[in-house]
């Protein structure tokens, strides 16, 4: 899977299911997910999705702002695991 593909899967997933605000938001790879309204429950669901979709394991200590703050960073994280 290419980086661009991973990025698109993530954007689709977050846009469709996870943003709690009703506003139409076109998510960009460098948007701050936490400021876009992704809450702690949303993050838990996202981690579960990553583990399922990409067959990786995400230890709790990896889930930091540095590695999960934006789609770009999560893509980098997922790629490094693949």
């Amino acid at each position: 899977m290419t980086t661009a593909e991973i990025e698109q899967i993530l954007i689709d997933q977050i846009e469709s299911q996870l943003l709690t605000q009703g506003d139409q938001i076109a998510l960009r790879p460098d948007d701050d997910l936490l400021m876009e309204g992704l809450d702690s429950i949303g993050f838990l669901r996202l981690i579960e999705f990553l583990e399922d979709r990409f067959s990786i394991e995400v230890p709790a200590s990896d889930v930091t702002v540095e590695q999960f703050g934006t789609v770009e960073r999560i893509t980098r994280y997922v790629s490094s695991k693949g």
Partner: peptide, 14 residues
């Protein structure tokens, strides 16, 4: 505590 850290427990503990 910025929103970013209050929502990610591993960042909060950092």
């Amino acid at each position: 505590v910025p929103l970013t850290h209050s929502r990610l427990p591993a960042s909060l503990s950092q």
